[in-house]
Design a binder for these strands. Sequence first.
DNA 1: CCTAAAGGGACTATGCAAGA
DNA 2: TCTTGCATAGTCCCTTTAGG
Length: 343
Amino acid sequence: MWITFYHQSKRYKRSLDLIDTRTNRKLAQQKLIPEIQYKLNSGEFFKNEIKIPIVDEFVQKSFKIHKSRRKPSTHLDYYNGYFNHIQEKFGKKYLNEIKPSDIELWQNSLLEKGLSPRRIKTLRTIFTTMYSDAIKDGVVNVSPLTMVRVPKAQKVEIKPFSLDEIKLLISNAEGQIKNFLALAFFSGMRSGEMIGLRWSDINFEKNEISITRAIKMGEISTPKTENSMRVIDIISYLHPYLKNQFQVTGNKKSYVFLNDKDEHFYDIKRIRETHWRKLLKNCGFEYRPIYHTRHTFATIMIEHNEDILWVSNMLGHTDSTMTLSKYARYIKRENVKRAQFLL
DNA sequence: CCTAAAGGGACTATGCAAGA
DNA sequence: TCTTGCATAGTCCCTTTAGG
């Protein structure tokens, strides 16, 4: 709703930041308009009116505010997301000018472009964060996004490998990749963590691996979350594979997995696109993301009644709720008779 | 809801071996 | 020694999935 009025023979138009509904009209009539009249008379109105910035300006401020707390990958993603999907449509608009209907149409157009609901959520986040910064500053009262729902994302299906399938895959892999897969399947580590693993992180006496590092797109950083910094067990089945890998790269005293220049892998992409893809094909499997090694570890361990807390710790989850909510539904326990104690 | 990592297309760079 | 063809590695840039 907009209000127009004359003050000292000049015409003004101001937004009330409200949708036109019966209750809002009442609110405007009984409260907002008298307030404006009062402020006009007292001269307060023009003195306090905050200059409302355009999106392009304010989003930069918002990025600056949050940059130090975000990982560079997140910052970059949001930054590009803004310029690819938001800027063109909204960049030159004033913050109070954008209405829920605009957001709705924008979301629809993104869907038509083929973006997933999930992606649209992320793009909304950029927008929402900017608006909440603006609200804190008192620049606007309300975000146009709060009233607009996003289309629901469908759940993705995870297909864990069976134990026999794992063995088939590992026996068909060669050299480093064999050991890499064994580690993936029997530790549940993330691929970035495995690439970033150094021999100094592995303690063969205690049979432990300490995970403090991850590599992504050539960039060495910390693992995904604080809780991902963890010490995990080398289960005895995995042990010989790591020992074998030690024969391959152990004398270099650096990273556990090395490319042919004896440096750490730039990122998982190479392993995935060449070895993993090929291996699945050779073994007659449909393609599955390499992250399924992690899913597989979790499901197999839980399926065989391993302690949930232990599995959570291995995966680096904060608590077992996370682990269960993610993996419990893939577990099939057949022929188990329940409540036997009653008999 | 907010944050961070994996996935993947497209392109470039580099390596390597056979052939001219 | 140069050329060519093929395969793999690195990079950029964007999307999808995972985690808290």
